[in-house]
Amino acid sequence: MLTVKQGGIETLVEDWPGRLGFLGKGMAPSGAFDNVGLGYANLLVGNLPGEAALEVTAGFFEAEFNADTVIAVTGTPQPPTINGQPVAMWQSVEVHKGDTIKFSHIGSTGFRWYLGIAGGIDVQPYLGSKSTCIFGNYGGFEGRKLQPGDVLKFGNPSRNLSDLTGRKLKQEFIPEYSREWTLRAIPGPNTCPDYATEEGMEYLFTHSFKVQHTSNRSAYRLEALPDSFFSRADGGVGGSHPSNIIDHGYAMRGALNICGNTPVLLIADGPTLGGYMCALNVINADLWKVGQGTPARDFIKFQLCSQEEAIQARIDQTKLFVEDTVV
Score class of each variant (00 low, 15 high):
175 P>I: 00
46 G>I: 02
178 S>A: 14
258 I>D: 13
42 N>C: 11
114 Y>N: 05
216 N>C: 07
41 A>I: 03
15 D>M: 03
131 S>W: 03
120 G>A: 03
11 T>H: 10
270 G>K: 05
324 D>V: 03
316 D>A: 14
298 D>P: 05
170 K>A: 12
74 T>Q: 02
128 G>V: 05
20 L>F: 07
55 E>G: 03
242 P>S: 03
283 I>F: 09
319 K>Q: 14
228 S>G: 09
321 F>A: 03
294 T>P: 04
321 F>N: 02
119 G>D: 09
185 A>G: 12
110 G>W: 03
292 Q>F: 01
30 S>E: 07
168 K>D: 06
64 E>G: 01
191 T>C: 10
270 G>Y: 03
211 V>S: 09
8 G>A: 14
292 Q>K: 00
202 E>S: 14
300 I>F: 14
306 S>M: 08
292 Q>A: 00
108 S>G: 08
24 G>R: 09
225 L>K: 08
271 P>Q: 09
41 A>L: 12
159 R>W: 01
250 Y>G: 14
70 V>C: 06
86 P>L: 04
58 A>Y: 12
140 G>L: 05
6 Q>T: 14
185 A>H: 09
302 F>W: 10
236 G>W: 12
88 A>H: 13
285 A>E: 00
109 T>D: 00
111 F>V: 00
273 L>S: 15
203 Y>K: 10
144 R>T: 12
161 L>I: 00
275 G>Y: 11
67 A>C: 05
52 A>P: 01
254 G>H: 01
218 S>V: 09
212 Q>S: 11
162 S>R: 04
15 D>Y: 01
143 G>R: 07
198 E>R: 10
167 R>K: 15
144 R>K: 13
86 P>H: 01
92 S>G: 07
58 A>W: 10
182 T>Q: 15
195 Y>E: 11
77 P>C: 10
46 G>N: 02
69 T>L: 02
253 R>Y: 08
319 K>D: 13
308 E>C: 06
282 V>C: 12
178 S>V: 11
155 G>K: 05
311 I>N: 13
105 H>K: 15
89 M>H: 13
151 V>G: 05
88 A>L: 11
